[in-house]
Amino acid sequence: MLKITDLNVSYGAIHAIKDVSLEVNDGELVTLIGANGAGKTTILHAITGLLAPKSGKIEYDGHDLIKTPNHKIVSLGMAHVPEGRHIFPNMTVAENLVMGAHMRKIDKQTLKDEMEEVYEHFPRLRERTKQLAGTLSGGEQQMLAMGRAIMSDPKILLLDEPSMGLSPLLVKEILSIIKIFHEKGITILLVEQNAKMALSIADRAYVLEVGRISMSGTAKELMDDDRVKKAYLGL
């Protein structure tokens, strides 16, 4: 479904991503783990066109994403929940969700029904529909960012550090929602520093170290790998 081949990204003189290849198949939940600064976010930004790679190929569903204008990618069924949530702070919760469906040509009733569905996944958002999104707590903002992404009716969801800055309880809640989305048939690429949490729900995983894929395999294999245990799981 999503196939990255020999991706290279540079920030000026810094070669941030070096020959990265990875693949996410239809229906999979794949995680990309690695330390802070390894380049995980950079890869997601290259996928959704927020930055231009130096070389490489990014194919999705028969489309060449590097050649696709970045604002058109969401209409291809790819939703990106960015690191730091990036909700619209001066719009209400409801307006943020409407923005999620911005590109879709749907009638008012469908829009309402789908917003209702989001509220069912995230009951806390329902209590705050008229509240400005910037006044929400971190966990609520994460829920809103995910809800907004779901409103685009995605086939694949790119999640960037959804657990960042959240209490263990909220991490659990977000985790169970990711599982629900996955069970509904949405393919997921989950980028996480919290390797333990990510590996616990993923089918397959890639480990990124200073811009290079250093290991890959099923989540189970990596969880049992001594190097991963030592470096990322704190065992």
Binding site: T48, G49, L50, P69, N70, H71, K72, V74, S75, A79, H80, P82, H86, I87, F88, P89, N90, M91, E95, V98, M99, G100, H102, M103, R148, S152
Partner: peptide
């Protein structure tokens, strides 16, 4: 709404499909 989106968070605007 597109105008407000671009003004509040350009990256999020792109990701929601705003030109």
């Amino acid at each position: 709404r597109s105008m407000r989106a671009v003004s509040q968070d350009r990256q999020a605007a792109i990701l929601t499909g705003v030109n």
